[in-house]
Amino acid sequence: MEQVIVNGVYLGSQYAMIALGLTLIFALMNVLNFAHGQMYVIGGFVTYTFYGQFELPFVLALLMSCVTLAVLGALIEKFLFGPVIRRSAREESTMLLAAGIAFLLVFGEKQRGVPKIVDGVFNWDFRIIIPYDRVLICFLAILSIVAFITFMQFTRTGRALRAIAQDRVAAELMGVSVNRYSMIGFALGAMLAGLVGGLLVTITGVNLGMGGPTSIKAFMMVMIGGAGVISGAILGGFILGMLEAVGLAVLSQYGDITYLAIFVALMIFLAIRPQGLMGKPWG
């Protein structure tokens, strides 16, 4: 039981970070970023290159992941999403663009791993067994989430981003440079994806094929918590992580039906509460 909870928290902390980036981009630009999973994979590859290949310190490699993805995100917003959003007759066209980018960012199928950062396994009376590197990653993930919330709450940029998320037009009328902050927000969302990718490469390795499934999980989290709401993304991430951990422990004898069960539960939940736990209702 304790083991399941620990696993849930561990999964949840990663998931929450992925969902945060996705929900941030959605809140700012009303764009469903299909390429989010791919950005996460790229983050993993950058960390792999710097930490695994060039043998630089792990923290430096992580930083490189963040910087690369932030630049990439800013460029994508500036040259791709921005123009399309301004010119298209239907807002759905951005989805085609997002899907195109998702294809663009993935070619080839490779599996890469890096050596562990810390060795050893935490063992509490055989009730909780968890490797130290997972503890470290979980801790770093939670730390990043806290840092992100602090940034959104207490800085000028964060305030501008929250204003745009609430009402784009009103924010613009109040003198917020919407174009500039959209770019910053997109970069920030992409950076979060890259950071998780960099963190997880030490545990699961990185595989170009894992972008798609990651995006799908991120969508589920965002639906549970409510799209465009930061607290919702965090909650959704931890709930999905917990459900997955419990599902794997309880339902394993019936085969691989954890996600089937989660989906059925999600549909019933959405029938009762279509806007998710924290989302704003329509109208």
Binding site: F26, A227, L266
Partner: peptide, 9 residues
């Protein structure tokens, strides 16, 4: 987007 996401799932 909600509908898009759930159909994808």
């Amino acid at each position: 987007v909600y509908f898009a996401m759930i159909t994808l799932v």
